[in-house]
Simulated scan of single mutants.
Amino acid sequence: MNTLTTTNTTTTAPALTIAEMRVPARLDDADAADFHAAVALNNAICLSDSGLDDFASTAEEMLPRWRTNADHVTRTLLAREGGAIVGAAVLGYGVAEPTSAEVDLMVLPEHWGRGIEQALLDRVESEVRMLGRMVLQAWTLHRADAATGPLVPRTGWGRLTATPHAQLLADSGFTLEQVERSSVYDLQADHAPVETMLAAALAVAGADYRVVEWTLPTPPHLRDGYAWALSRMSTDAPSGGLEVDEETWDAERISRRDARILDGGQRMSVVAVEHVPTGVLAAFNELAIGADLTGVTHQYCTLVLKEHRGHRLGQIVKCANIVRWRGIAPESPRISTFNAEENRPMLDINEAMGFRPSSYAGAWQKKLD
């Protein structure tokens, strides 16, 4: 008689380890594999969360941000199981701004729910505490149908869907402080309406304001004024309940920022409006694109200083930069930009120009004990 013997075996899952990523000096260095993997993970997360490829970045564009830390520090924690990367968390904080730090949590859906995301978030919170910072901020990305969701920020403006990422933050003591709308503008459409809006806005602004424009690097004689305008992003832009330190900018910091953008292979156009009686740059708009001039254009910062609002300066800088952009990246299909839902003046301009909603983002904040 034959006897069948069954042997019970137990398979132990590889242990989860979290360690800081080594930043390579060059993208073709032998130790650059983890950086390339982190970029690919970031792009996969953005596509998964938003359903769009608008937020993808190349390793060339991203490396200068990790390599330079004079003004802003960026660190990446990699989670591994058996040597395989299963998640990451990017920790960022300003050098001169002491209050807050930001975390970008990246775990793909197939790895979610096994404790990886919680382990990364706990590790980041520990790192932030060791830095002596008492505020941790995070962002979630949501698809276009998020506007019908149940999550409402403390501002009362906008709504979001309750994704697993958002639920994790809520369960971990974070508060949804703000909703931002991502909007897109068709660069291949007829620009005649934008040109008409520009002419009308210039007529309202009058002779006290004149348009100034440049392509990076910023001309030396404009750096101080541009620095002042950029510093006002931290005080004048709507931030909901987020704790934002007032930033200090000078000509040297402008030069460092320009170099970081250019070293990443990007091109940027800036259109500003100068208040002629004082010489102050009262408003500005930035458009940027990577080395592939057929890719998506991104609007970075746009601001009108509080004391110069009411003269259609926001309309001037946005419209003038779109007109100018045709000579820089004529084959780019669209502009992608984020604006706070409570920033109705800027959204009104966008909507009149032809921008349409494409996705949403949530700004979350946790105050550490």
Score class of each variant (00 low, 15 high):
residue 272 A to L: 07
residue 237 A to N: 03
residue 339 N to Q: 02
residue 230 L to E: 15
residue 25 A to H: 14
residue 52 L to C: 02
residue 193 P to F: 12
residue 304 V to H: 09
residue 292 D to S: 04
residue 20 E to Q: 14
residue 184 V to D: 13
residue 113 G to I: 09
residue 285 N to C: 10
residue 335 I to W: 13
residue 128 V to F: 11
residue 172 S to H: 13
residue 297 T to I: 05
residue 283 A to G: 08
residue 35 F to Y: 10
residue 144 A to E: 14
residue 62 M to A: 10
residue 163 T to P: 00
residue 153 P to K: 05
residue 320 A to L: 09
residue 149 G to R: 12
residue 76 T to E: 11
residue 11 T to W: 11
residue 219 P to C: 03
residue 15 A to W: 05
residue 100 S to F: 13
residue 94 G to L: 04
residue 70 A to S: 10
residue 364 W to M: 02
residue 6 T to D: 02
residue 34 D to F: 03
residue 197 M to D: 10
residue 32 A to Y: 08
residue 180 E to Q: 09
residue 369 D to C: 04
residue 16 L to A: 05
residue 298 H to P: 00
residue 299 Q to A: 06
residue 295 G to Q: 09
residue 180 E to W: 11
residue 86 V to C: 06
residue 152 V to Y: 10
residue 130 M to V: 13
residue 198 L to T: 11
residue 276 V to S: 05
residue 165 H to W: 11
residue 98 P to V: 04
residue 98 P to E: 09
residue 3 T to C: 00
residue 4 L to Y: 11
residue 218 T to P: 03
residue 137 Q to R: 12
residue 163 T to F: 07
residue 295 G to E: 09
residue 181 R to C: 14
residue 345 P to A: 02
residue 358 S to T: 12
residue 3 T to V: 15
residue 333 P to I: 02
residue 291 A to G: 12
residue 156 G to W: 14
residue 47 L to P: 00
residue 219 P to K: 05
residue 363 A to C: 10
residue 116 I to N: 01
residue 72 H to G: 00
residue 156 G to M: 10
residue 341 E to T: 09
residue 139 W to E: 08
residue 115 G to M: 07
residue 274 E to G: 02
residue 95 V to S: 01
residue 152 V to K: 05
residue 308 H to W: 10
residue 269 S to L: 15
residue 88 A to T: 08
residue 133 R to A: 06
residue 155 T to Q: 07
residue 204 V to G: 01
residue 368 L to K: 04
residue 112 W to F: 15
residue 148 T to Y: 05
residue 14 P to F: 15
residue 318 K to L: 08
residue 125 E to V: 07
residue 230 L to K: 13
residue 136 L to D: 07
residue 125 E to C: 00
residue 238 P to T: 09
residue 141 L to R: 13
residue 288 A to S: 12
residue 62 M to G: 01
residue 133 R to Y: 14
residue 183 S to F: 06
residue 194 V to K: 02
residue 197 M to V: 07
residue 60 E to L: 09
residue 115 G to S: 05
residue 77 L to R: 03
residue 335 I to K: 09
residue 21 M to H: 06
residue 220 P to C: 02
residue 49 D to I: 04
residue 81 E to Q: 15
residue 161 T to G: 04
residue 163 T to Y: 01
residue 30 A to G: 13
residue 253 R to E: 05
residue 91 L to V: 12
residue 168 L to F: 14
residue 157 W to K: 03
residue 80 R to E: 12
residue 11 T to K: 05
residue 108 L to K: 03
residue 45 I to A: 01
residue 133 R to H: 11
residue 166 A to Y: 07
residue 360 Y to I: 00
residue 270 V to E: 04
residue 73 V to G: 00
residue 337 T to D: 02
residue 141 L to W: 14
residue 361 A to M: 14
residue 23 V to Y: 14
residue 272 A to E: 12
residue 30 A to V: 15
residue 323 V to C: 08
residue 6 T to S: 01
residue 290 G to P: 11
residue 292 D to Y: 06
residue 20 E to I: 02
residue 103 V to F: 08
residue 162 A to K: 13
residue 350 N to C: 03
residue 265 G to C: 06
residue 320 A to K: 12
residue 315 Q to D: 04
residue 305 L to Y: 06
residue 179 V to K: 03
residue 167 Q to G: 00
